[in-house]
Amino acid sequence: MAKKKSSPKRSSKMRVGIDLGTSRSAVSASNGARDYVASYVGWPKDFISEKVLGKPVLFGKEALDNRLSLELVRPLEHGVIKEGISRDEEAVQELVGHLLELVGALESQEIYAVVGVPAESLRANKLAIKRAVQDYVDSLMVVSEPFAAAYGRGLLNNAIVIDIGAGTSDFCIMHGAMPTEDDQRTIQSAGDYIDQQLFSMMKDKYPESDFNMNMVRNFKEAHSYVGNVKGKIEVEVPVAGRMMIHDITEEMGRACESVLPAIVENTMELIAKFDPEYQEIVRENIVLAGGGSQIRGMAKYIESALSEDGACKVSIVDDPVYASADGALALAQDMPEEYWEDLLKEE
């Protein structure tokens, strides 16, 4: 989608919710369309690459698959735009334009967007996101990702939402009011941390094998688990040019479990800060969102760990990949028109 030009009249309005993630970004729109893409943006390295690829910019898996011909950027780090690198800001702009294209947004439409950011994002981070998005939308708000997920699921009271993403795990405790910073947390024990742990463990176990972080990420997405798993997890990895079977069952479990202590500890701390009269209710209403919630056994394992201190229930949102984007869209749709108008970008 092309960037917006100054044009006072628009044919129609569209509300969108966007979850800009370190690993993947999702969008939900008021026309019912929604989509997601891996957060990769690539530009052809030279004239020949552009001719071969036939596009000036590639996104997601397509970009990753053609990375040797591209200047490939993964522009978000820990859920925010990497600091001080203009190429990353440009990549986020392209990504946002692509997401809006995916849901059929038109340049002629008036677009109001709510964008999810990590819970403890600084104002600087929010401004960077705004800068990157504002060329494509008419009015924009940023909200914390776990709060957006909570809002979208109607979890507005006596609940904790834990959004386990790639760059960050975000916590938000809901008590029937706008959550303050005390109600929210961001930690970096998340998917990327698991990837690093798994990579390191595999390197220790198979020093002669040849693999990269992208392969490790794919192994995780296919086989991740915590707790117990039936059978072995075996993957094919080249050794001296020949594909060999590698057993990574134990490494996968250990890597995935490595994020759990911090998640459990932060959850406990948030519960402990809640009104004691309602702590029991909150313990029964812990909800996981984000790609990390799809790790097999995750909810059960956290529930088991938290149950050491009393009964609790941990569930997973129905559609973890879209939870934040759907919630952001719900906010965009519920937000009064006059609020949007106040935030209209200055021409």
Partner: peptide
């Protein structure tokens, strides 16, 4: 059931925060 007025308070909070960010 979550009260509409409470929901409006939440939306108002988001709006105020975004005014501040902007």
């Amino acid at each position: 059931m979550f009260k509409r007025s409470k929901k409006r308070d939440i939306l108002d909070g988001i709006y105020q925060e975004n005014l501040w960010v902007a």
